[in-house]
Design a protein around this nucleic acid. Sequence first.
DNA 1: GAGTGGTCTAGACCACGCA
DNA 2: GCGTGGTCTAGACCACTCC
Lengths: 250, 250
Amino acid sequence: MILPLQAFSSLDRNSPVPLYFQLSKIIEQAILSGRLSPGDRLENEVSICARLSLSRPTVRRAIEELVNQGLLVRRRGLGTQVVHGQVTRGIELTSLYDDLLRSGKRPTTKILELRKQKASPSVAASLGVSINEEVIFLHRVRGAGKTPVAVMQNWIHPRYENLLSSQTELAGTGLYQWLRSQGAAIQVAKQKIAARRASPEEASLLEIDKNSPVLTMDRTVFDNTGEALECGQHCYRTDLYSFEFTIVER
Amino acid sequence: MILPLQAFSSLDRNSPVPLYFQLSKIIEQAILSGRLSPGDRLENEVSICARLSLSRPTVRRAIEELVNQGLLVRRRGLGTQVVHGQVTRGIELTSLYDDLLRSGKRPTTKILELRKQKASPSVAASLGVSINEEVIFLHRVRGAGKTPVAVMQNWIHPRYENLLSSQTELAGTGLYQWLRSQGAAIQVAKQKIAARRASPEEASLLEIDKNSPVLTMDRTVFDNTGEALECGQHCYRTDLYSFEFTIVER
DNA sequence: GAGTGGTCTAGACCACGCA
DNA sequence: GCGTGGTCTAGACCACTCC
């Protein structure tokens, strides 16, 4: 099966959106909508170039995006095919707030603490500040509707000090959304996912039995200058949250 | 600080290894070895091109690899810099066996079951076979030295039927290593990480208390034809295992 | 031999950040 | 205005797979 011509009518060469990105989204849409099914072969690169009057590097880059997302596989001499299996979003740099929104839940936030705090050695190391320098400490319970989902502790770099007076915005959005609104260009995150028993305090906040298992994520986030923005320790109810993602062999 | 010239002496234009890959490894090595420190600026692209007699797309591709690994960040008009923070390997398509080896442990395997089994509805869906078609079922305990680390159940596509007579090789290597030795080109994996209480059987196999938390991973692996190779449900001791990785905003 | 993706070149022009 | 990365072109040659 071949990607139908009709799908390509919408390339806009005057758009600020790069051509490779437009094309990538068009093909992605063809896959997600089912017009291209698992196992189907994509039209070959050279032919796409000809039909769309694009150069081959541009077309290759569009396809590459989807290969890196795990939607397509390429084999030299054979062609490009749609991967089988359910489509799963990769882990992206989103906050739990966005995740809940996307899955149709109504995200809620209870801010337990928002204050300055001297950096512990581990927080100082993560954020690249001196030990005992003051950083912003944020302690929240995130929920879906009336159900608590996660207890989150974040330590934010002191250059975002005005977070201290933004409690209201913070309650209505995610931390990342707020950081972006401050001009931060979030780019890289290093994270660790593990599990343990809930502490008594966590159990009570999450409304689960003492000693229940919780899923934990420790994460440090960097911006496009390569400097740390914030680090956090989060713990999630195991009955309401898990991490799904796709990895691709390079 | 500028990447020193000397580092570039080793480009081999006759090697089958692509130039962009060679260059990428050279820069990566400069970062990992500390010759380039977090915050350091990389020499600009055009100048690298000139010095190495490479075209700009080739140099860009090399740098791009490292940006996608979260080692570098680029800013238009400003340059390319090394990201702060510890370097963490991304999650790769490796088996627990490889993970243990890399961290200096001595991986052990106890195979509990290796036999044909009719596919359950969910296994059939994952592997893309008919319900009740026979697949290969593999049940193992993986350990480090004498300590059990994970209980792993895998269901392998019936086209790898000769796994049934490879119990010995399997005990000494990882499943993925065996699959590759059969010509499988593992390419994409879709996985879910979660946590729950251990079942009584799991607790006994992992030598942990009943109801202890375990970290779980469900994974389906696809080859370069886009077809499923195997799917598995694994559960890990939380005191011995966690998942670390880096994600990059696209 | 024909068809496919993989690598590479040598440019071009643009958008952005800064002085 | 200048230097940086971001996008794009129009080719070239190669490696692999299948017939």
